[in-house]
Design a protein around this nucleic acid. Sequence first.
DNA 1: GTTGAAAAAACAGAGGA
DNA 2: TCCTCTGTTTTTTCAAC
Lengths: 144, 144
Amino acid sequence: MDQIDYKILSTLNENARIPISELSRMIAMSQPAVTERLRKLEEQGVITGYRAELSPHKLGKHTTAFVLFKTNNCKDFLAFSETAPEIVDLYRISGEYNYLMKVLTETNESLARFLDSCNIYGYSTPLIVLSTSFEGKSLVASNV
Amino acid sequence: MDQIDYKILSTLNENARIPISELSRMIAMSQPAVTERLRKLEEQGVITGYRAELSPHKLGKHTTAFVLFKTNNCKDFLAFSETAPEIVDLYRISGEYNYLMKVLTETNESLARFLDSCNIYGYSTPLIVLSTSFEGKSLVASNV
DNA sequence: GTTGAAAAAACAGAGGA
DNA sequence: TCCTCTGTTTTTTCAAC
């Protein structure tokens, strides 16, 4: 992992669909060399995947909320949560509550309905997201 | 936006670097037609970008935490947070605390040091992430 | 890690349901 | 309007160095 690898990671974090030919021009290195570095970064698990980032709003999801909660049935809740399209992120956390989830619903009302339908207790008042200042900042500096 | 568009979105959410030729084979549609649909989805803002997903662990970030806090200097904090590599997500939220941030640091100790260095007050005990059950679930169903 | 040729894919045009 | 077909350009892959 050197400066060139960091540059590759930072560039792909900004635009994962950039052609390798263009990437290689940007970092002034031959295409096969960049391809080989990329292959290694994927193999080592530094790069875990490539994702299209979608607009929740354009897909009719107008409410984003974080909910802290407790559950005894960790295993059951995990199975449920994987099938619930509303839950996009799920974290096991330290502290009074043992889970944190990020939930996307169409409206505030559908958020309330969804929470009622979850088999959880002791959940916090939903932390409604008023605005997302930024999200998914790159883990590697862009000016390497 | 029809079923085919949803299929394109869901496929690109799983692998954003898939060649359009392969994508077009998967959904049994010609390449130019898929290219045109993709162009429109980007133009409409349904697709906001393509990102490489990196492993925090492989990059030396062993601690992930969510921190709720209050600040009066919203503008100043936003400027600071954009330059702080530790803060990867920042949300303005409803409720007693007015901000939620996701922070990645090398260790628990560096998390403590970072929070001390932030010009915020009334922040919650950091919600340390013990494990990420899942993250970034697709906003569109995969079985469309 | 570089160069250069062959294969594959992306792009841009005309034509058809 | 949206899709298909075809030729051209670009990109990727694979060889040898």
